[in-house]
Amino acid sequence: MPRMDAAEIEGLVRRARRLAESGGRRVLGIAGPPGAGKSTLAARLVARLDGLAVLVPMDGFHLAQAELERLGRAGRKGAPDTFDAAGYVALLGRLRTAETGTTVYAPAFDRALEEPVAGAVPVPPEVPLVITEGNYLLHDEGPWAGVLPLLDEAWYLDLDDRRRVPRLVARHVRFGKAPAEAERWVERSDEVNARLVARGKSRAHLVVRGTGETP
């Protein structure tokens, strides 16, 4: 996760807690380029909110590897069209209005398998805050344009490329790619996606900067 001091983390926790305690079901989205630390920040917020929040990752809507191969898109896994964006928007719509007595199940993404896992994340109706994170929450093309209107707040997690890219390469290596293969994948795929993600930064309600600055 980007370097932040204790005061910055506390400020983000307080902001998320205000959403959770504002009445009804709220949805907080955390966007940013690959390797920025979105999932780590989201998980830390959930842990600090003492049962008031649940994490629903956008990555659960990755298309299965077999479908990507059928479509000829396996080499660009992670691009906007390699997700079920309409399904993600539909789930966010369900999550915004908690139905008494009904637990909604969301998919997750298993990085070791590189596959989505259906029904992996239970969202009980009494939990007041859903935190969702992913690359394209602020993307404004196709079905992705339907995400931002469903978020009560959208944060953009920004990290300098000189720190983000090596972290991203290291993550790919950790999950099985050879170093040279990981570097090639980041250059030809992840960084193409990162430039697209950056276009949505101005639409965020809050930019969280990896330099330690939180405006």
Rank of each mutant, 00 (worst) to 15 (best):
G37H: 01
E153D: 04
V169R: 03
G93D: 09
L129E: 04
R163K: 12
L138Y: 02
G146N: 07
P215F: 11
R164Y: 04
T40Y: 11
D160L: 10
A36C: 15
T132Q: 05
V165R: 13
S22T: 09
P215Y: 04
Y156N: 00
F61Q: 08
R184G: 10
V89W: 02
L12H: 00
D190G: 03
D50Q: 12
L150E: 10
V117F: 11
G32P: 05
L129W: 07
W144G: 08
G35E: 08
A120H: 08
T211E: 12
A36Q: 05
A64M: 12
A106M: 00
T132G: 05
A43F: 02
V127P: 08
L157D: 03
F175D: 09
A182W: 01
A182P: 06
R111N: 01
L63R: 15
A154V: 03
P116I: 08
A204R: 04
L168E: 10
L151V: 02
A20M: 07
A64L: 14
P215G: 14
V89D: 08
Y105T: 09
P179S: 00
V121E: 10
G51R: 07
F83E: 10
V130R: 05
S189Q: 15
L71K: 09
W144Q: 11
L206N: 04
G210K: 01
K201W: 00
R18H: 14
D50H: 12
D59L: 07
R164D: 07
A42C: 09
F61S: 09
V121F: 03
P107V: 06
A36V: 12
